[in-house]
Design a protein around this nucleic acid. Structure first.
Lengths: 201, 201
DNA sequence: ACTTTTGTTGACATTTTTGTCAAACAATTT
DNA sequence: AAATTGTTTGACAAAAATGTCAACAAAAGT
């Protein structure tokens, strides 16, 4: 952060973030946000003008955090398989920290404001392009099965993210306890690797 | 439907469904719903008492539709691989019809009312149990790699659903046109099968 | 010590949304 | 054609949420 923030401002952001992306309460009123953060409601307006604005700021910061981490991994010089493992580990952790961020992504991405839009395709794309090339090379080498490298990427994200964000639904439908489901998720890490690498060890 | 519905009632439900699960406008006001359905706002209250109630009804009906289709597939007597293909086909179609249903699922499943809760675990669970057994048998036979059969199920749903519901995000991040992404999805059907069956043809 | 800036509060006005009601209207039944 | 039933409407009242403002308090600067 280049701009100095007062304690209250950071507090509001932190609790808003939690309310939105951890608890999934997107319809939280200004009052709810303020209560949750333990401050007077007017302060939300004082620091962030409007609720929408607060939302955008918190959203952009959270996304940026993730993006820069991924960008770093994408261009890191390391063994392909280790890289995939690192992506999976980080994604697991990040999704479990903010399970509702995706929900917001889905609903809002199509109607993003210009500023927010830019957060989705910064230079980041460059790092991604580099990584897609790497996937193609790995396919040539025979380390992974040959198919559209974009779809390889989509598979990684799908296999990790979906079971986490859909956790409440899966638990209900499959009739699993929280502990059961945690165990299921834990097992997945290795199983996902196996699937992606065509069960070659 | 056992209860006879008047034209207007059905109309409101249909357009509300579209507004919610196709367009993703969950915060739609009674006025918006009425406008979209082309009826007077008061009629929404007349037929459905409250907005929440309308929501629950539409949600339950949509879920039921999907559930009965899946139940049928689960217990159908057919070749295992053909069954998986049928599941994938139906899921592709259903998710693309109501891409925002999942979003609602995620947000609301934890705080469902009792009536809504029951929709999530009817006898349906029985059919599911049968199918899980079938997955285990197929693993024994060597048709698919051996791992937690629940996770096999989770993989199927993840690989199909996630790329569809996250479409707006993926298009932006990967820099693809609508046409490009449609092509990507189309290719996925076969690639998913290949992945699940360990690339054995 | 005093002035300026920054942070905080309660009260207010506005807007949005919701649900109800009685009256008007249409369709059926008697 | 009178009565009953079901449908539709506009007007109303109540509630919830948002953003602004002037007053007050605290901190920083002179």
């Amino acid at each position: 952060m280049s701009v100095i923030e007062c304690k209250t401002e950071a507090q509001i952001k932190q609790y808003a973030k939690e309310l939105f992306f951890v608890k999934g309460n997107f319809n939280a009123s200004t009052q709810e946000i303020a209560d949750y953060a333990g401050v007077n409601r007017t302060l939300v307006n004082y620091y962030f003008r409007s609720k929408t604005n607060l939302f955008e700021i918190v959203y952009c910061e959270t996304i940026s955090e993730m993006r820069s981490e991924f960008a770093a991994i994408y261009i890191a010089k390391m063994d392909f398989r280790a890289k995939i493992e690192r992506i999976i580990d980080y994604l697991f952790e990040f999704r479990q920290t903010y399970p509702f961020l995706e929900v917001f992504n889905i609903q809002e991405t199509p109607k993003l404001s210009n500023q927010m839009d830019s957060i989705l395709n910064p230079k980041y794309v460059q790092e991604l392009t580099v990584f897609v090339k790497e996937i193609e090379e790995e396919m040539e080498k025979g380390g992974i099965p040959k198919y559209d490298p974009m779809n390889f990427l989509v598979n990684v994200f799908s296999l990790v993210s979906y079971p986490i964000i859909m956790r409440p639904v899966f638990e209900k439908v499959l009739g699993l306890t929280t502990a059961d489901y945690s165990a299921l998720l834990e097992k997945r890490k290795k199983e996902i690797i196996a699937i992606l690498f065509n069960n070659r060890f």
